[in-house]
């Protein structure tokens, strides 16, 4: 018997296929197109195939992210908070604080010793959009996402930048760029600003060790570094799975 979890996000669609012993058989991560239903259908098919299974082998599918409305074939849905919490506990059982930074949404979740969600906090209006802000900045700087993270580590100076609003921050980055400020320093300033905003969300809950960073931005080495600085403590990322996969894992666990 196998189950599936699907997480349709604004940027990526993630599918996890899991057996009844909680082993992950396969997963896929695909770009979410404008037609969500089509994207989720295709990603799902692909994941099932990758697991060497057939559709009818999947006994139950739970959706998260946009949920059932974007993945109508799912049996039920679960909120991102619950999915991220369960997934995080699965990939790192010592995690008590989970910080997720996605394209449009950021959230912080506090887990108890059994992996249940104890408290959570979501980004306020003016602090949303961190992930897609980074995407836009990568475009402006004309670097790859990897280079963008690496650059931040090379900075010799921290430029204070207020990123209360990512839209307004963009204009500031453009100004810095046009003032011939080195890319490394700009990258550091952006990472610091985002870490600042994300930490502010996280501080609304009690930040207990271990801190696990998930979501797309957890791939960014510059961001991990900035979060460590900002929180003044060690920050972990999932070791065996991509950090953006975690909520889909949580969704699959919810199907068991």
């Amino acid at each position: 018997m196998a189950v599936a979890g699907i997480d349709v996000g604004t940027k990526l669609t993630k599918v996890v296929i899991m057996d009844e012993d909680k082993n992950i058989l396969a997963y896929v991560i695909e770009r979410t197109g404008t037609d969500h239903k089509k994207s989720s259908e295709e990603a799902f098919e692909k994941a099932v195939e990758k697991a060497g299974l057939k559709r009818e082998d999947i006994k139950k599918t739970i959706a998260t992210g946009f949920g059932k409305i974007s993945a109508p074939f799912a049996d039920d849905e679960v909120t991102q908070v619950i999915a991220a919490g369960r997934g995080a506990y699965y990939v790192k059982p010592t995690a008590r604080t989970v910080i997720e930074v996605g394209a449009e949404e950021s959230r912080a979740i506090q887990l108890d010793d059994n992996g249940n969600v104890k408290d959570f906090s979501l980004a306020d209006k003016c602090a949303a959009g961190a992930g897609s802000f980074v995407d836009a900045m990568i475009r402006y700087l004309e670097v790859t996402p990897d280079e963008f993270g690496q650059l931040a580590l090379q900075a010799t100076r921290a430029i204070p930048m207020n990123a209360q609003c990512v839209v307004f921050a963009e204009s500031e980055v453009v100004s810095l760029l046009h003032s011939n400020v080195p890319k490394a320093e700009i990258s550091r300033a952006i990472h610091d600003a985002i870490a600042d905003r994300v930490a502010a969300i996280a501080r609304r809950i009690e930040i207990k060790d271990d801190v696990l960073l998930i979501g797309g931005l957890a791939n960014d080495i510059g961001f991990i570094d900035a979060m460590k600085r900002e929180l003044g403590k060690d920050v972990h990322v999932p070791e065996n799975y991509p950090p953006e996969l975690v909520p889909a894992i949580g969704a699959a666990l919810s199907a068991l």
């Binding site: 991102q80 908070v81 619950i82 919490g85 969600v117 959570f120 979501l122």
Partner: peptide, 10 residues
């Protein structure tokens, strides 16, 4: 609504 669902589920 997402907040409410998350809260209730938690």
């Amino acid at each position: 609504f997402n907040v409410i669902d998350s809260f209730m589920q938690s």
